[in-house]
Amino acid sequence: MPPVIDKEKCVDCGTCAQICPLDVIRYAKDENGKKHVVVKYPYECWHCRACVKDCPKDAITMRYPLSHMMFAMEIPEEKKN
């Protein structure tokens, strides 16, 4: 799942769910009526990192899916600085 929420640090304040531009993270009630943040639509994440930046507890990191891999190429040895 792209945004990975560290449940040890998370206080379920709902900030990430509120600001996520893609509505990936929802703020949902459990059976006792208590609200929790849930990464409900992970495949719709755009990796903008709004949740990472705005989390007051630094509880969120990004996992970048293999479907989005960048293609990197080392330059030839003789051209290196």
């Binding site: 990796h47 990004m62 960048m70 330059i75």
Partner: peptide
């Protein structure tokens, strides 16, 4: 620019722009 997920990605995968070009 708000595209720091690119640098976060490069850091996580250990891609160094001193040595590698990005397609």
């Amino acid at each position: 620019e708000g595209i720091d997920s690119i640098t976060d990605y490069l850091d996580q995968r250990g891609i160094d722009l001193h040595k590698s070009m990005i397609e």
